[in-house]
Each structure stands twice: as structure tokens, then as C-alpha cells.
Simulated scan of single mutants.
Amino acid sequence: MVSAAVERLLCRLVDLANDTNTHVGAAVVGRGPGDYRESFDLAHEAGAITRELADNLKPSVGLRNTIVHEYVSIDYDIVAAAVPMALESYTEYRRQVAAFALEQH
């Protein structure tokens, strides 16, 4: 059951970031993304996150899609390896988006 919880949390991180990116893109740039990966580019274009962070986070979309859509059998070694990256990158994402939101007000 721990693996299912980790999968769910990783998927939620990506989903929530996509929702945030979509909102930021619509509000600042005037359009939404075509897909989840593009949402990170849009967040960068809007000034919410750095290019480096956008590029670091885009691979998490592939893992999310594999988990959600079950394209292939899930390799739990890959999922386990994604956890430290997610902690680091999504913590930085939260920091950058929060700073961006504060600047907007």
C-alpha cells in the first residue's frame, strides 16, 4: 500500500502544478497550455518559475502519465528514485510560485 500512496502523491504534485500553471498562464499570458509539459513552459513564460526549474519538472509529467494511464508496468525502482527529485524540485516550485504570487499583489 505504501507504493500506491507514493504513486498517488507524485501524481497529485504534477496535477496541482498543472492546475497552477494553467491558471498563471491564463491570467498573465492570456492562454492555457496544450498539455501538462507545456504548462511548465507557460509558467516560465509568465515569470512564475525559472527555465531551469521548468525543464527539471517536465519529466515528472511522463512518470505521472505512466502511473495514471498504465502505459507499461510500473517500475517501482523508477518511482522510488523520483521521490527525492520530487521533494527537491517541487519544494523549489512551491517557493518560486509563492514568491511570484506575492509579487503580483
Rank of each mutant, 00 (worst) to 15 (best):
Leu53Arg: 05
Val97Tyr: 06
Asp55Phe: 10
Tyr90Gln: 12
Lys58Pro: 04
Gly32Thr: 09
Tyr76Thr: 02
Gln104Asp: 13
His69Thr: 02
Leu87Pro: 00
Thr91Lys: 09
Asp75His: 08
Ala82Gln: 07
Cys11Gly: 09
Asp35Arg: 00
Glu88Asn: 11
Glu38Gly: 02
Arg64Thr: 07
Ser39Gly: 12
Val24Asn: 00
Asn56Arg: 15
Ala5Met: 06
Arg51Leu: 15
Glu52Phe: 03
Lys58Glu: 10
Val28Leu: 09
Ala99Gln: 10
Arg8Ala: 01
Arg37Pro: 06
Tyr76Asp: 04
Met85Asn: 11
Leu16Val: 13
Ala17Asp: 13
Gly34Thr: 05
Phe40Ala: 08
Val2Cys: 01
Gly30His: 08
Met85Glu: 07
Ala82Pro: 01
Ala81Cys: 04
Leu16Gly: 00
Val2Trp: 03
Asp15His: 11
Ala27Met: 12
Pro84Asp: 01
Asp15Gln: 13
Val83Phe: 06
Arg12Gln: 15
Leu87Lys: 10
Ala101Ile: 11
Glu45Lys: 04
Met1Leu: 14
Glu7Asp: 12
Ala80Met: 03
Leu102Ser: 13
Asn56Leu: 08
Val72Arg: 01
Glu45Tyr: 00
Tyr93Ala: 11
Ala5Arg: 12
Val6Ser: 03
Leu10Glu: 05
Glu103Ser: 15
Thr20Ser: 03
Asp35His: 02
Thr66Glu: 15
Cys11Trp: 02
His23Thr: 00
Leu87Gln: 10
Asp19Ala: 06
Lys58Trp: 14
Val2Ala: 07
Glu70Cys: 08
Val24Asp: 00
Val6Thr: 12
Ser73Cys: 01
His23Ser: 00
Ala5Lys: 09
Val61Gln: 04
Ser60Thr: 14
Ala27Gln: 13
Glu103Ala: 15
Pro59Gln: 12
Ile78Gly: 06
Glu52Ala: 09
Asp75Glu: 08
Ala99Leu: 12
Gly34Pro: 00
Asp35Thr: 00
Arg51Pro: 15
Thr91Trp: 03
Asp19Gln: 08
Ala17His: 13
Asp77Ile: 04
His23Ala: 01
Val29His: 00
Val79Lys: 10
